[in-house]
Amino acid sequence: MANIKLDIFRFDEATDTIPHRDVVEVDIPETITVLDALEHAKAEVDGSISFRRSCRSAICGSCSMNINGVTSLACKTNCKDVMDEDGSIQVDPMPNFQPMKDLVVHMDPFWDKYARLKPYLQPKDKDSDHERERRVSPDDMKKLVDVANCIMCATCYALCPVVSVDPAFAGPAAIAYAYRFIEDVRDSKRDERIAQISEDYLWLCAHCYACSYCPKHVDPNWRIVDVKRAAIKDRVLMNERGPRHALVVAKTIKQTGMLAETEVIQGTIGRFNIKGLVKITFLGAALGMRMALKGKMPPPFIKPIPKVDEVRTIFESLEVPVS
């Protein structure tokens, strides 16, 4: 048995203006989960402690919260792995969400982003046209299995630094779920779906891999890359900055072997988009000017690396699109 001190974020949006913290001590085996410890605290000490839970076995996705500052499923986290020497464990609501009561948050923005995906199969014909179920080959199904494990716990959404500053970003889970339908051979709305998720800022993913901490190993970080590749393959909304950026980076590497910074900026914003270029190059209080004054501008032209033909051979062998 161990004396576990749960240091709990307490807040009730109906009555409180600022949150406070309560430390609740429970005597329980340290091998149990943080969720069990919370259940115990609620049952034995303070019935008003609020948190979401249902399955207690990492299937329902309800109990994601911050445990010692790390967003995790409480039912999948053992107390002994996270408690301090004195047995304390800090529990807080997930970040990137508005707290409702204690560890319960308003999930609406997260669900809204799912709803925008139309997260159901849209085949081109009716079920009644088929004598039996639509069949999918094992290879086609394999692509969808991992992402179908998503339990919508929103851990990735809470961890996403882009969501934290720009709530318009769809977030990792929604993009991964878009992939689930985009790559489903039974679906008929592939390009509409790619366009929709592009408009919800698919390309605003910052490549930070914070969402690689998915408790179900969906790895939304790689699915986001898959959706971007699908967009480029199908040439959906190719004139937006995101795909232009990816393609101009590839182009400059093919031409010079290097990522040519100046050309990448011009190619992403649009060489003839003078207004856009001025805005980016002289962003805010003239970042470009400030850099130029310090002699910190990238060179306008890049000399190709030695044996750049080899790089071009690689691009051509793999048929890499560069425009």
């Binding site: 890359v225 590749r229 590839a250 072997g257 790089v311 890499v320 699109p321």
Partner: peptide, 26 residues
């Protein structure tokens, strides 16, 4: 390694799944 190319900078992954790996193999 003066003849080395760009590592792909995470961005070329968005275009092709193999190219960064082969560039780095070079």
């Amino acid at each position: 390694l003066t003849a080395a190319s760009c590592c792909g900078a995470s961005v070329v992954n968005d275009v092709n799944r193999d190219v960064a790996r082969v560039l780095n193999a070079r």
